[in-house]
Design a protein around this nucleic acid. Structure first.
Lengths: 335, 335
DNA sequence: CTGAAAGCGCTTACAG
DNA sequence: CTGAAAGCGCTTACAG
């Protein structure tokens, strides 16, 4: 099967024992430079590559991290994975992806994750119940596997996480619209209570309340094809002069219907959105957005995880990282 | 470290040898039903899960497949991975993702893929040179690892692949526009010569030639932010009454600029596109598209790969699968 | 600095 | 149908 060269071949060809071969690969400082050179040369010649599975078994480190997601087709998830992979590449970790679509399969998948002996876990899944989240944390802790939540808000302080201050971001965006003279501002959110969207709702509500305005949250599906129908019913003599969408796809659906109904954006209705995906730029007019550095969230989460994996017990500094956000003003809101 | 229960614990607790425990898991038919029951019960009680790394080393099957991609943020790639994972879940394979962004890192990454001992490989990467593709095939064959190309066109017949007949699809779409009376039809393609886009160009050219019309291919970047600038220069008194874009993002960029310039779509210019992503539905007007079943490509490729992995030498039937496509007419073309 | 040996947690001929 | 033993390809104390 594997017509591959093993460590034995290198040992034989170089005249050293396999212990030495192993050492030049894993602890080069423990080996005399001269022999190191020789061994390296033989490795090169033979094209030897350590079998990662064998190494994983012997060292109990697989140098692979598990990434738990729900829906990989969501732009933000794919983008995060991009950030994760760029970092995992430089740290020589492999990425194994696990998806959990609903609360039912949690136990099953977590058993898999444990069985696969990953060294750490990145949790990007924001579609499960609180109970499931706890179950997952519990499984990971019991398996003694370090993990970090990426773009998922975890309440307790002991959970490592990398997020945005969505409450603040939402608050700021709402205030910006208020300062531009808007009064009837809607928040277009999702029916499903993603942890991050709950924070957005809270920030919005806070700003509205502070200004004596009534918060109005409209919840629609995460599903593009349904949103349009929802929004078609939305505009029924409603007073509305601005809207903030929690996602670009919701914003664009809203925009299309609004324009169809004869509203001018931004003159009649200002529209802002979270995220800065291609949708925001391909929309007509282009969307004002809160730029969420999704790629960075993935990258930073992965880097934090490497620290956690290297010194399991040691001090790794702050494990609750909040990345900065910013507002990008474009044509969908008035200047 | 791993406070986990091993096969030894199960053996001890059940009174059977580890050989028997292993057999009830891997070859249950070789074990007496009564003892099977007992062992299964103990496994259940102890919550035993075989260490996949140890199993991988001993059996030389890791039940993980490697997926080689370039850019995970491309909607079609993410969608394909979705299809792959749904199937790999049901077949109990894990997914490890490797990305190769450019021709330089090919050797390096392929060494990793081999070292990781994956049982099979799915190749979704359509951004590399012909040489790189060959290098990759060579590495895989030498490592004796079965693989299939998903949505990447491989010329030689011995390469297993799952694709769309892009040439035909493109030909049909072009003919449709011609039949609607269009004469100055542009193909909006990419500067990079993806194998699939080359096929699209060929189909388009064929249809145009057959009707005595001059093929006009405009190549733009794959990068959204640059496309708009390109298209701004594109309309310089050009005669144009239709366009076909190889991707939704290109179509939408084109659409926005065209409308900005005062063209009416579809009355002045009909616009069609490949792919049926959310962009096509969120565009205003909605796009006529060739529906590429990207999810299915991933799913079918994964299923084909499982066959290849199970009976390496055996007959698996047709390994060159072409999935059907269809045209979805929407507002961006006239009826 | 180097080697001999045990062990990582499984699977799989080989006997019985 | 079941068990004892070897082996998968490495790593890592332990001696020297």
């Amino acid at each position: 099967m594997s017509n591959n060269v093993t460590i034995y071949d290198v040992a034989a060809a170089s005249g050293y024992s396999l212990a030495t071969i192993s050492r030049v690969l894993n602890h080069p400082e423990k080996v005399r430079p001269a022999t190191r050179e020789k061994v390296l040369k033989v490795i090169e010649e033979l094209g030897y590559r350590p079998n990662m599975i064998a190494r994983g078994l012997a060292s109990r480190r697989t140098t692979t991290v598990g990434v738990i997601i729900s829906d990989i087709t969501r732009a933000s998830v794919a983008e995060m994975i991009g950030g994760i992979m760029d970092i995992s590449d430089t740290y020589d970790y492999s990425i194994k992806i696990f998806s959990i679509h609903d609360d039912v399969r949690v136990k099953e998948v977590m058993k898999n994750v444990i069985a696969e002996q990953v060294d750490g876990v990145l949790y990007l899944n924001d579609e499960l119940s609180e109970d499931s989240n706890n179950e997952i944390k519990e499984a990971l802790r019991q398996g003694n596997i370090p993990f970090v939540f990426a773009n998922v808000i975890a309440d307790e302080k002991q959970t490592a996480s990398v997020v945005i201050d969505y409450l603040k971001a939402s608050y700021e965006m709402t205030k910006m619209l208020i300062n531009q003279g808007k009064k009837n501002i809607y928040l277009l959110s999702t029916a499903r209570r993603y942890t991050v969207n709950v924070a957005k709702e809270n920030g919005y509500t806070k700003a509205m309340n502070e200004h004596g305005l009534e918060p109005m949250i409209f919840r629609t599906s995460g599903d593009t094809s349904i949103n349009e129908a929802h929004f078609n019913e939305f505009f029924n003599g409603k007073e509305i002069d601005a809207a903030i969408a929690v996602r670009n796809s919701i914003a664009v659906s809203f925009l299309n219907v609004a324009i169809n109904k004869g509203y001018n954006v931004p003159n009649d209705i200002s529209l802002a959105s979270f995220q800065n995906t291609r949708y925001a730029l391909l929309s007509r007019p282009k969307l004002t957005v809160i730029d969420i550095p999704v790629y960075d969230i993935g990258a930073v989460a992965m880097r934090l995880l490497t620290k956690l994996m290297e010194r399991k017990a040691g001090d790794v500094g702050n494990t609750r990282i909040i990345l900065p956000h910013s507002i990008i003003e474009r044509q969908s809101t008035k200047h």
